[in-house]
Structures are given as C-alpha cells and as structure tokens.
C-alpha cells in the first residue's frame, strides 16, 4: 500500500518536474524578446531608417546603409541559392532511387551541419583572396551555399507528399514527364516550396559569421556588389562590442529590426503550411 502511494507520488512529482522544464525553457525566449522591445523600440524613429551612421561620438544616426546592404546581399544570395536548391530538391524527389539522389541528399545533410563560419572561410579563400579585396558578392556566395541544403530538403519533402495518382493522371492524359513534373507536381507543391524558400531567406538574413570577412561591413551607403557592404547583423555585432553607449542603443534597435524581419518571415511561412515545417534547418 505504502509502496503504491510512493510510486504515485513519484510519478506526479516527475511530471511536475518536466512541466517545470517547459517553463524554464520558455523563460529565455520571453526575456530576449522583451529586452529587445524595451531597449530597442524607443530608438526606432524616422532618422533610424533613413540616415546613415553618424560620426563616432555624435548622437543619432541610422542604419539605412545596413538595411540596403542586407537587402542586396540576401537578394543576390537567393538568386543563386534558391534555383539550385529547388532544382536539386526536385531531382531528389523525382528520381529518388538514383545514386546521384542518394549522394546529393547525404551531402545536403552534411552541408546543413557545416558551421557557417567555415563557409565564410571558404568564400574568402575562393573569392576574396584572389581578388584581393572584400566584397558583398563573396558574402552572397557564402549565404547561397547555406541556403542550398535547406531549400533542397524542404522542396524534396514537399514533393514527396504529392499523391501518385495525381502524377499518374497527368501521364495518362498524355503529358510528357517534364510537363507532369512542372505543371502538376511542382505546381501543386508551389506554396510549400515558397514557404521553404522564405524560411531559408529568414535564416540567412540573420547570419553574421559568413559575412565577417567577405562583405566585411561599411560605414557608407553602397550598392556596389564588388565592394565591402554593410549588413544588419554586422552592425549589431560591431555596435554591441563597441565602447560607446550610443552604439549599444543602436545595436539594440538594429537587433529589434533584424529579429522582426526574421520572425515575420518564419512565422508567416510557418502559418502558411500549418506546421509542416520546423524552424530549424
């Protein structure tokens, strides 16, 4: 009798304990978002979005150079990374038994686990070193490299969900295979592919490490892809480790903007497919 009570109590206790783990795990999320809002929201004014950085020691200034920089770097990265990732994903789903599909899928998993700083070193050795100057393009290449495996796997997973009967119906109507793939299979999964792409964009938009010695950062509004360029994550990093209060204020505000971009993209993408994806890569 006593033993049964003890076992029941222990069970209840442990359930309470794992419940507590949930609360503990959610605390950092709340704190981070809360601090970003409290410390960052006050600085988001018109000047913040329209001005470049003020001279060191002067109050004010904005991050328009970094906003433009991030748009360009991420845009160019998407132009390179998305088509390759999506096409390779379609290949893996449409010809699943082939040796190439197995190899590509495995390599994509390896790439997914590659630290982004290593990809930065790769882009430096490949592009920056021969050209002998830092460039936004090298940053885009590094980010594109990170996008490919993410988009590849989501595309493949989405296409696998298409029922065989749909494909067979198209083929039975006399569609050639390539039109079946494009007009029926890919088209049905288009929302899913778009979602996967959005998630990938959201993830790389916040990447800092691959840009440190490729895009490098810049104090000026620049649109030249072959030159160093500012980006939001780089601004957060440089201002956060800098010595001035004013910089810290701007770092919080910039981080808030960055996280809003990332969260809006990921949450929108996630809601669109109702939980078919996880946010991790």
């Amino acid at each position: 009798m006593n033993r049964r009570i003890w076992r029941r109590t222990r069970s209840g206790l442990m359930v309470g304990l794992v419940g507590l783990a949930v609360v503990l795990a959610l605390v950092p999320l709340g704190l981070i978002l809360g601090h970003l809002l409290v410390k960052g929201a006050g600085s988001l004014d018109w000047a913040f979005f329209t001005r470049g950085p003020a001279p060191t020691g002067v109050e004010g200034g904005g991050v328009v150079h970094a906003i433009v920089g991030t748009l360009i770097i991420v845009g160019v990265a998407s132009l390179m990374g998305l088509p390759v990732g999506i096409a390779a994903g379609i290949y893996c789903a449409e010809y699943p038994g082939t040796r190439l599909a197995t190899a590509t899928r495995f390599v994509a998993d390896v790439m997914n686990g590659t630290p982004s700083i290593v990809v930065g070193v790769f882009a430096w050795t490949w592009i920056v070193a021969p050209q002998k100057h830092f460039s936004a393009f090298a940053g885009s290449v590094a980010l594109a490299f990170l996008m490919v495996p993410m988009v590849l796997r989501t595309t493949e997973e989405m296409i696998k969900l298409v029922p065989h009967s749909l494909r067979e119906a198209a083929l039975a109507l006399g569609y050639p295979r390539w039109r079946t793939s494009l007009a029926v299979v890919v088209r049905t999964t288009l929302p899913g592919i778009v979602t996967g792409s959005l998630l990938a964009v959201a993830r790389i938009a916040g990447e800092t490490a691959p840009l440190l010695f490729t895009a490098l950062g810049s104090q000026f509004l620049s649109t030249r892809i072959d030159q160093p360029m500012a980006a939001l994550p780089l601004v957060v990093f440089n201002y956060a480790i800098g010595p001035f209060e004013e910089w810290h204020r701007l770092a919080w505000a910039t981080a808030l903007v960055l996280i809003l971009v990332v969260l809006v993209l990921s949450v929108a993408a996630r809601i669109a497919t109702r939980g078919r994806f996880t946010l991790r890569g």
Binding site: V22, A25, L26, P28, L29, L31, I32, H35, L36, K39, A202, R203, A205, G206, E207, T208, A209, P233, V236, F237, A240, I241, H248, A251, W252, A255, L258, I259, V262, L263, S266, R270, G275, T278, L279, R280
Partner: peptide, 26 residues
Amino acid sequence: RQPVAFLIELLAAIPSVVYGLWGIFV
C-alpha cells in the same frame, strides 16, 4: 503541445548575433 513546441523552436530562429547582444548586456 503545438504552441509550446512552436515557441521553443522560435528560439532556433533568433539570429546568433542577437543572442550575443542579449548575452553581453543582460
């Protein structure tokens, strides 16, 4: 289940540099 799992996975969407910023100052 779904909402909590979603919130915790949201932690994975926060950029590393933002963690760094929060780490330094909080």
